[in-house]
Design a protein around this nucleic acid. Sequence first.
DNA 1: TTTAAAATGATAGCAATACTATCACGGATT
DNA 2: AATCCGTGATAGTATTGCTATCATTTTAAA
Lengths: 224, 224
Amino acid sequence: MAFSIKISLNENLYLRDPQESELGKKIIQHGILLIDDIGFESFNFKKLAKRINSTEASIYRYFENKHMLLIYLVSWYWEWLGYLIEIKTLNVVNPRKKLEIIISTFVSASMENPAIEYVNESTLHQIVISESSKAYHTKDVDDKNEKGFFLNYKGMLGKVAKVILEVNPNFPYPIALASNLFEMTNNQIYFSEHLPRLTDIKNKKNKYAEIEKMLEYFVNKMLN
Amino acid sequence: MAFSIKISLNENLYLRDPQESELGKKIIQHGILLIDDIGFESFNFKKLAKRINSTEASIYRYFENKHMLLIYLVSWYWEWLGYLIEIKTLNVVNPRKKLEIIISTFVSASMENPAIEYVNESTLHQIVISESSKAYHTKDVDDKNEKGFFLNYKGMLGKVAKVILEVNPNFPYPIALASNLFEMTNNQIYFSEHLPRLTDIKNKKNKYAEIEKMLEYFVNKMLN
DNA sequence: TTTAAAATGATAGCAATACTATCACGGATT
DNA sequence: AATCCGTGATAGTATTGCTATCATTTTAAA
């Protein structure tokens, strides 16, 4: 059974809400698959249009350009993670346990959770790992930030920072630890896949479990 | 007085060695300034050519494309950092002190060190902060990695990992800590400048000192 | 059920980008 | 004096990143 939640995203992210139409959903669905397939640099709306039997012009009616689509997709992921963290920790009292859940969500949420039909979370996670830094490393960040494009990121990390403070109310850098935890997760996954000499995670097949273990080690050291 | 070292970089990074000619040095010098100025996305060889009163074709004789120039520049930075770490820790015996030096080098090397005339290290650091993730987040990482394009990164982090092990020989994730330390430094600088809600560093004017303090706090917690 | 409105498709076009090719020039090398 | 090398000048080409227009289909309202 699939969730029938609607992920709620800043409406400045799109020109027309893609969650409201068949074409929109196809853009999301195949946008994810195609970006993952050929990489964000070679991805463009013409290729996507061809893939979904539509036209470039139609896709431009939903998103200003491919960069906005990327921001939309990673925002979707951020929001979805925040939502998962919320429900998974809802009935947990022990804050350390909550933090374990968060780490495991960061590492492998995409593999164990029911999906919105048209979003392949696992592929989306791959995009977040490989491409999400491009969403905010751009000359007009400040502009985009003012328009609220990164609110989902901030919101999700805010929840994590709250739990960090529950574990240790005196910890002086809760947000930095939260953002670092998330970035580190994705970096270490990427490094272990592509640049193994930048990480200690060597075992390719147990990769995710090992990264989870490592992150727990880091966090526990930090918060003691 | 400027150093007269020559930063040694993998010769697959370029078509013609830019350190060997006036035009090459101009490409490096103004490449850095122009990328910083307009951002990597809008940067191109035509604009750079115009800026240095040369031609597109001439620049293409040095670098295959702008992406290769970016890899060259960040490799330059990585190598330069490694070199600085080396000489700054050479006569230091206490490994904790060494690690402090490394952190301070990560944060603010670019502000206190003599320069190779045609490289503005401070601007280059800004580029590393804003654009370096694009150097290795690309569909052909594995290819590029095989060609040795990221050896300077690995080499520099290797030195850091070694010091981490000197501080605590039982620490199980020295490379991950090293890479995370470097990435975190640049992320936190970027966040504090552009996305302040993703960090705890609020004080804009004392930013660098505060980030340094934070990183030391993190590392000390980690290695105890 | 008809009628209007909205969304999509089809096609065209245009300025900019990311190159590649060719040739001419000038300075250094032998 | 001949030649080689690096650079400049110019041109050209395929692709990208859009925008515009109009015809057609789908949807929703009257």
